[in-house]
Design a protein around this nucleic acid. Structure first.
Lengths: 234, 234
DNA sequence: CGCGCATTTGATGCCCGTCAACCTACGTGG
DNA sequence: CCACGTAGGTTGACGGGCATCAAATGCGCG
C-alpha cells in the first residue's frame, strides 16, 4: 500500500490547526480503503471497530427499523467524518453506511480515538463541532417532518442535496451521484410513488429534470419557494 | 444572594471527575435564577449570552417555525444542561426554553464556555457527551416520524416521558409535570384533537388515566406493545 | 438482446387533519 | 362562596393528502 500523503487531509476542517508533522502522525495510524459501490463501510449494530474519513465518493447513512423500513439519515461528502460512534461513547454503530458510488476512505482503529483526541485537541474539537452540526441538522429535520407536507419535505431534501453535492451542468444543478426515487422517499418519510408523482409534476413545471437515478434542479429558486410553502404560479 | 453549595452539582454526570475545589471555582462563576412557570429561560434566535443547568423543575425546549407552528424538541430534567449553543459554536439559541413549572437554574456567561472547557476537560467531555446523546435521540425521532403512525408516535412519546420523569403513584406512573394534549401533539407532529381521541381510547382500554394537564400510564407494558405496532387484544 | 430494476401511472381507500360545537375544571374576583 | 370567564378537553362530521395495491412501460447492463 502506498504511503498516504498529508495533502489528502490538510485543509479539511477536522484537521485545521495541526502541523504537518502532526498530520503525518495521524496518517500513520490510518489505513486507506476502497469501497465498491453498494458495499457497506460499516453496519448498524456492528462492533464499532473503526471510525472513518471519506476521501472520495458519496456514502449514505441508513437506519433500518426492526420491521425492515429504512431511513436515510444523511449523505456523507468527501472530507467528512463518519462512524464516529466512539466519540459519542458508543461501542456499536447506530446506522449502516453504504457507498453510493465507488469510494475511498481512511479508517482509524476505534480504540485510537481517545488517544488522537488527547494528542490533538483541534481534532477533538473538530469532531465535536461535526457532532454539533449534525445535531442541529437532525433537529431541523424533526421540525420538518413534524410540520411540513410531503411536497415541501421532498423539495427541501433536493435543495439540501443540491447545496451539498450539486454540480453545475448546462441544464441546471445535478445531484452528483446516483439517487433513486426510493432513496428520496427514504430521506423524506414517504413512498417512491409519491416522489415519482412529485418529480413528474415538477418536471412539467420546468423546476427539475430527472431520469433514472438522476435528478437535476433547473430552477432552485422556484423550488425553494415551493419548499417554503409559498404559492407558485404555474 | 446566598452562596451556592457544591453539593448542588456534585454527582451530576457533567461534573464527574472534578475535585471539590474545581466545583467551587465553577460555581463561583454561576448565578442562580428562579424561573416562574411559563417564563422563558432563553429565546429562540436570541443572543446566546449564557448556558444553563437545570437544578429543579422541568423545562420544555421549543422550536417555532416561521409560520408559527411549534415543535417540542425535548423536555429538560433536573441535572441537565441546556442552552449550550456556545459549545456548538453558535452565538444564538436554536430554540426557546420555557419553564413547565417553577424552576431553579444555574446560569454561566456564555463567553466563559471556552475557559471552563479548557480548565476542566471532564466538563467539556461531559458536555459533548450530552450533545452526542441528544444527536442519537434526535435521529431516533427522525426515524420515528418517518416510519411510524401517529398512534405509535404518541405512545412512544408518553413512554419516553414516563421513563424520564415518571413518578410512581397508586394508579400507575404519573408524568411529573403539567402536560396538555397540545404539548403532546407538538412532541409528535400531530394535533391536540388526535391526541385527545387516542388518550380516551386508551383510557377505555385501561392503558392510561388522564385528566387536565395530567397523564398517568397504568400499563406501560401494553402501551409499549402498542408503540411497537404489535397488535393488542382488547 | 433480453432480463431486471427503476419508474410511471391509475384506482381506491383510509388515516388523520380540519372545522365546528360543546363541555368541564379551575381560579379569580365580586 | 358562588358566579363567571377562560383555557383545556371532548366529540362529531367531513374530506384531502398520501399510502397502498396493481400493472404497464422503459432504460441499461450483462
Amino acid at each position: 500500500m502506498s504511503r498516504l500523503d498529508r495533502s489528502l487531509i490538510a485543509g479539511l476542517p477536522v484537521f485545521q490547526g495541526m502541523t504537518p508533522a502532526d498530520l503525518d502522525r495521524v496518517l500513520q495510524q490510518a489505513r486507506s480503503l476502497r469501497i465498491a459501490k453498494d458495499q457497506t463501510v460499516f453496519e448498524q449494530e456492528g462492533d464499532a471497530h473503526s471510525f472513518f474519513l471519506l476521501l472520495d465518493g458519496h456514502v449514505r447513512v441508513v437506519k433500518t427499523t426492526p420491521d425492515g423500513q429504512q431511513v436515510i439519515v444523511r449523505y456523507i461528502s468527501p472530507g467528512e467524518l463518519m462512524g464516529i460512534a466512539h466519540a459519542l461513547g458508543r461501542t456499536t454503530y447506530p446506522a449502516s453506511a453504504v457507498a453510493a458510488v465507488d469510494c475511498v476512505v481512511l479508517a482509524w482503529p476505534g480504540n485510537l480515538w481517545p488517544d488522537l483526541a488527547g494528542s490533538f485537541p483541534s481534532f477533538a474539537t473538530g469532531t465535536y463541532k461535526t457532532v454539533g452540526t449534525r445535531l442541529q441538522e437532525a433537529q431541523a429535520r424533526v421540525v420538518e417532518l413534524a410540520t411540513e407536507q410531503v411536497e415541501q419535505r421532498v423539495a427541501h431534501a433536493l435543495l439540501r442535496l443540491v447545496k451539498q453535492t450539486g454540480r453545475k451542468t448546462e441544464e441546471g444543478i445535478l445531484i452528483d451521484f446516483p439517487i433513486s426515487r426510493q432513496d428520496i422517499a427514504e430521506m423524506t418519510g414517504t413512498t417512491l410513488h409519491t416522489v415519482s408523482r412529485l418529480l413528474t409534476a415538477w418536471e412539467e413545471k420546468g423546476l427539475v429534470k430527472s431520469g433514472r437515478q438522476k435528478v437535476t434542479v433547473v430552477e432552485p429558486h422556484r423550488l425553494f419557494a415551493l419548499a417554503e410553502g409559498r404559492a407558485d404560479k404555474g
